[in-house]
């Protein structure tokens, strides 16, 4: 039986299995959304790996039920603290994440001066020092297409919205989540 695979099949599968976001309007994104390809890839990843393909209007990605995975938690913690500090500064975090340029100096200022989340920053290896933050941004997040590097600056791609949507979801299940961790003060 000869199966006809969509164009860029290898790149699509490799990117997604590497934990990357595929972004609109790239050729990989367009290919996945062409004709019946969306259904094909949804089934393909479900049947082959038991992963769920999530298709949004600006990006697509895979998720699994693997609770050992730490990267998304690190990124969520990073973006949450960053948003909080931007808001504290009196700026609109939503607009800043969507279109502003960041650099390591600015990021370090937010994290080094964050009194509210000092304990969490200290306890999270991936964001506790300027070096670890640099690695999280320019290795982990860059490789996964969550940021785009522009010279010495970087910008968040639309993929960062996954983490904002997750935060929004949390408010809906607020009551269901039973905490065992001590509360932080603002």
């Amino acid at each position: 039986m000869k199966i006809e695979y969509p164009k860029y099949h290898y790149d699509i599968v490799k990117s997604l299995l590497d934990g990357k976001f595929i972004l609109f309007p790239g050729k990989l994104y367009k290919t996945v959304l062409e004709g019946e390809n969306k259904e094909f890839y949804t089934d393909f990843f479900k049947e082959s790996f038991d992963y769920e393909l999530i298709v949004e209007t600006e990006y697509l990605y895979l998720i699994s039920d693997n609770t050992d995975e730490k990267t998304s938690r690190d990124i969520m913690t990073f973006i949450s603290i960053l948003s909080y500090e931007i808001d504290k500064e009196g700026k609109n975090f939503f607009d800043e994440l969507n279109s502003s340029f960041f650099n390591l100096e600015r990021i370090n200022q937010y994290f080094d001066n964050s009194h509210s989340w000092h304990e969490i920053i200290k306890a999270s290896k991936q964001i506790s020092s300027p070096e670890s933050r640099k690695s999280l941004i320019y290795n982990t997040m860059l490789k996964r297409n969550i940021i785009e590097r522009i010279g010495d600056n970087f910008q968040f791609t639309k993929a960062h919205k996954v983490f904002l949507n997750f935060a929004l979801e949390l408010t809906k299940i607020d009551d269901k989540v039973k905490s065992t961790y001590p509360q932080q003060s603002l």
Partner: peptide, 17 residues
């Protein structure tokens, strides 16, 4: 609401659990 969710995430230890 997103900020509220992030606060929830950080303050209730979901980042840690």
């Amino acid at each position: 609401l997103i900020l509220k969710g992030m606060h929830h995430y950080l303050s209730k230890g979901l980042w840690y659990k």
